[in-house]
Write a protein that binds this DNA or RNA. Structure first.
Lengths: 224, 224
DNA sequence: GACATTAGTTACAGGACGTGACTAATTCAG
DNA sequence: CTGAATTAGTCACGTCCTGTAACTAATGTC
C-alpha cells in the first residue's frame, strides 16, 4: 500500500428522473433560464452534513413535483469525461416518478422521450445510459414498474409498463398467470371505464411474502 | 435548480478483492506494517489523470499477485460513515481473483473468509457487504463464477463455485443440462485425477453467441 | 477381484410457459 | 333496440424446462 493520503476532489450529485410519457420512457432535463440551448440532467453540489441520497432527493424535489417514488444510486462517474460543472467526480442517482404526475410548467424543465434526448455533456450521457440499463436490469428484483405507475392501475397498464421497460411484447394470459403466482398485486373494488370496451378493474401494489422462489440456476449469461 | 457550484471533497478508491478459499468466499485485507491491530480494505487516493478503474486496478495489483480477472465499480459511499482516511467520499470497486492464486506472504496481507472478517471501519463494512451482494446478483449476467476459477476446471468445481455463490446445493444433472444449453464452456482434452474415483475432464470458459434467451417475464420480485 | 468413490448420462414426472380461442362487459352506429 | 366493434379477463392445450432418482463409467484401495 502506498501512502495513505486522500485527495481533494470537486464533486456533484446528478439525478436521472424517469417517468413514462405516451408509451415511452422519458427523462427530465433542465436548462438555465438564461435561455441558452444546453439541456442537462439536474445536478447540484452536495451540502455539508447531507447524505448523498438526501442530496439526490433534494435535487429531485426541486425540479419535479413532490418526491420521486423510488430512488437509488447508479454509481460514480468521472474519468475525464466533460460535465456542465468543472467537477472531477459526479455521483448519479436514478429516481422514478409515477406517470401522469403534473410536471412544472416553467420552460426551464421538460420531459424528453429517451429516443429524443438532445446532446448532453458526455458524462451526463453516460449517467443516463447507465441509469436506464440499471432500472431495466433491476425490474426482476425491485418494483420498478410499479413506481412508474400511479397507486392504482389496471393490469393492462401494468403489462404495458413491463413491455415498455423490456422493449418487447408480452402475452396477456402469460403475464397475468405470472403475476398471479408472484402475489404482487391485490384487486380494489374500483373499476375504470376507458371509453369503449369493458371496464377494467383497478389493482394496487401489495406484495405478499412468498417462498424464496426456489428456481434453480439461471445461466443466461452474456447475450453476446 | 440552485446555484451551480461544485464542492471540494476528499476521496479515496477502495478495493474489495474476493477469491475462494477452502469452499468459502474470502476477502483480502491489509494492515499497516507498524503492527496495529486494525485490518482494512486496501485503498488509496486516486491520482491525477488516472481513471477510477485504473486506480482500482493499480491498488489491486499492488496487494495481490497480478491483475484481478475481473473488476467493476460497486458504487460511491460516504454519508458520514467512518473510513480509515479522513475522506468524505469513497468509491468502491470489486475485483475477482482466481482461486489458488498464490497470495503475497508478507504479514501485511491476508485472505479472510467472509464469515470471519474482523471489525472494519463502518464505511468499509458497508462496501464489503455491497460488493458481495453485487457479485451474487450479477452471476446471471457476468461470468463471475468463471473468474473465481482457474482457466481450466472440472464441472464439479464449477458447480461447487455456483453453490458457494448461491449458498445452496444444486443437482448435478440439472446443472449440467443448463450449462449445456448455455454454450458457456468447451471441453479440453485434458483430464484430472483427484486421487480416488473416475478422473474428471477439464473444461475452459468459451461462451458462444446464442439467441437472446427469449424467456418471458420474471416476476421474482421482493423475496421479502 | 470386490468395493468404495467420484464422474458423467439417461429417463421420467410435474410444472412453467407460449399460444390461440373463448367469454364478458361496455360504447357506438344505425 | 340491435348488432358490430372494442377492450377486459379466462381457459385449455401442447411444448419445453426443471427436479429427481437411477443408471453407467473409470479410477484407487484392500
Amino acid at each position: 500500500m502506498p501512502d495513505r493520503k486522500s485527495r481533494r476532489f470537486s464533486s456533484t450529485i446528478d439525478v436521472v428522473l424517469l417517468t413514462a410519457v405516451g408509451g415511452q420512457l422519458a427523462v427530465l432535463l433542465w436548462r438555465s433560464p438564461e435561455g441558452r440551448e444546453k439541456w442537462m440532467l439536474p445536478w447540484d453540489a452536495p451540502r455539508p452534513a447531507e447524505s448523498m441520497e438526501a442530496s439526490a432527493a433534494r435535487i429531485a424535489r426541486s425540479v419535479a413535483v413532490g418526491d420521486p417514488a423510488w430512488i437509488e444510486q447508479v454509481g460514480a462517474f468521472g474519468d475525464g469525461k466533460r460535465h456542465p460543472s468543472d467537477a472531477e467526480l459526479s455521483v448519479a442517482y436514478v429516481g422514478l416518478v409515477p406517470m401522469g404526475t403534473p410536471s412544472p410548467v416553467g420552460g426551464a424543465y421538460a420531459w424528453f422521450p429517451i429516443a429524443d434526448v438532445p446532446q448532453l455533456a458526455p458524462r451526463q450521457r453516460q449517467m443516463l445510459d447507465s441509469a436506464i440499463t440499471m432500472i431495466r436490469g433491476r425490474m426482476d428484483q425491485s418494483p420498478v414498474a410499479f413506481r412508474l405507475l400511479p397507486q392504482m392501475f389496471t393490469l393492462t397498464e401494468l403489462q404495458q409498463m413491463y413491455e415498455l421497460l423490456l422493449t418487447k411484447r408480452l402475452h396477456k394470459a402469460s403475464f397475468r398467470r405470472a403475476l398471479q403466482g408472484a402475489w404482487l398485486v391485490e384487486p380494489t373494488d374500483e373499476w375504470r371505464s376507458e371509453g369503449r370496451g369493458r371496464p377494467a378493474q383497478l389493482y394496487r401494489y401489495a406484495p405478499r411474502k412468498r417462498r424464496p422462489a426456489q428456481r434453480g440456476i439461471r445461466l443466461d449469461l452474456l447475450s453476446s
